[in-house]
């Protein structure tokens, strides 16, 4: 056992050693960078927007387009998608016509109020944050399919999953312990 431990230690020492004359990659210099740089791979704000509105073949692009540029690049496509999902769309509960609604959605940011209740929708406040218990999908379904009075397409405006399977905590980190 002792012998094994010693071998293990020598291995770790080796793995930590800096190789001075052999490089992995002649295309790239391997010095430690002064700045640690990252390239974006995924991006998200409002729930399920990418899943519902972004077509196959454009998800990588959507995920790497800064929000300030997303509207210009995706608003028309979102509009087409909305009308494909719900050909009878006129306006929704927020009074937004298709172009205005998808124009908002295509810029995928989440507004968070610092001085009012934070909620996706609580009957009064709209899109002022997203709480763990917010039934965000039902809200989105109502806005997509419910028409101006939320009464259209009753079979499509509620997935009838209204709450999480575990209750949340009032203290940090708030999310329920894992299953």
């Amino acid at each position: 056992m002792m012998k094994t431990t010693l071998k293990y230690l020598s291995m770790i020492a080796f793995l930590g050693m800096v190789i001075t004359f052999t490089a992995c990659d002649d295309d790239d210099d391997n010095d430690m960078p002064v700045n640690i740089i990252y390239e974006q791979e995924d991006q998200m704000a409002r729930p399920a927007i990418n899943t519902v509105f972004v077509s196959t073949g454009e998800k990588d692009i959507f995920n790497t387009t800064p929000p300030a540029e997303q509207g210009a690049a995706f608003a028309t496509k979102f509009n087409d998608k909305l009308l494909a999902l719900n050909p009878g769309y006129t306006t929704n509960l927020l009074g937004l016509d298709a172009a205005t609604f998808t124009g908002v959605l295509a810029t995928d940011v989440l507004t968070v109020s610092l001085n009012a209740p934070t909620t996706f929708y609580d009957g009064t406040n709209v899109l002022t944050g997203r709480k763990l218990e917010d039934d965000v999908i039902t809200v989105e379904l109502i806005l997509l399919f419910g028409g101006p009075d939320a009464m259209s397409n009753p079979g499509l405006t509620d997935d009838h999953v209204d709450a999480n399977d575990k209750s949340f905590s009032d203290s940090f980190p708030y999310l329920a312990s894992p299953h």
Binding site: E41, L110, V112
Partner: peptide
């Protein structure tokens, strides 16, 4: 209010 988004 602020606008936020997360990236990886």
């Amino acid at each position: 209010s602020i606008n936020i988004w997360a990236t990886s």
